[in-house]
């Protein structure tokens, strides 16, 4: 992946080009490379934002499939404070889960970061929810109560390259891509 591509993200004019760029940035990463990155992200969130688990309450041991529909993988989150986990799966190998939250990659990223309203996304069909609705509502409310930016925290874990990728994704989003 060439980071120099990110500098041109904002200049891509067509939706198809922007979508292709998003996939180029995130999509082809092999899962065995992605897993330690995701592990580091969720451990960091658990360490820095322990209050997250209080709001999730009895649903801490549930599993949530977070499905970015325009990406070649999906994520499974288990927000158990004793052993939080976030793992990527190919869709043909998904484990059983309690609830599923689906949307485009950038939509989900912006919602997790408190920049988009989940209800409005649901009304516009940009977001769908299936399974244990109460668990999803708890997770949404817990994430929404976190100060600062979870996504920026995650990007900062990886220094300048991480921040550059995030800035590139945000530029793509600002240009209207989902």
């Amino acid at each position: 992946m060439s980071l120099s591509i990110l500098n041109f993200a904002g200049s891509f004019g067509h939706t198809e080009e922007r979508m292709a760029l998003t996939r180029l940035l995130i999509g082809p990463v092999p899962l065995f490379v992605l897993q330690p990155v995701l592990h580091r992200i969720i451990r960091n969130i658990a360490l820095r934002k322990p209050e997250l688990f209080n709001r999730i309450g009895v649903h801490r041991e549930k599993s949530f499939l977070i499905d970015p529909v325009n990406m070649p993988f999906a994520l499974v989150l288990r927000p158990d404070p004793k052993s939080p986990s976030l793992r990527a799966y190919r869709r043909r190998h998904l484990p059983p889960v309690d609830a599923t939250i689906s949307g485009s990659f950038l939509t989900l990223m912006e919602m997790v970061d408190g920049r988009l309203d989940g209800d409005a996304l649901f009304f516009s069909r940009a977001l769908s929810v299936q399974g244990d609705t109460e668990a999803v509502v708890c997770l949404r409310n817990a994430l929404d109560d976190m100060d600062g930016s979870v996504v920026e925290d995650a990007a900062n874990l990886f220094g300048a390259p991480g921040r550059k990728i995030l800035n590139g994704l945000r530029r793509i989003r600002q240009n209207g891509e989902r």
């Binding site: 408190g114 309203d117 209800d119 929404d144």
Partner: peptide
């Protein structure tokens, strides 16, 4: 009150 802080902000 059930909406997100994004809704509240906007």
């Amino acid at each position: 009150r059930q909406r997100s802080k994004s809704y509240v902000r906007d």
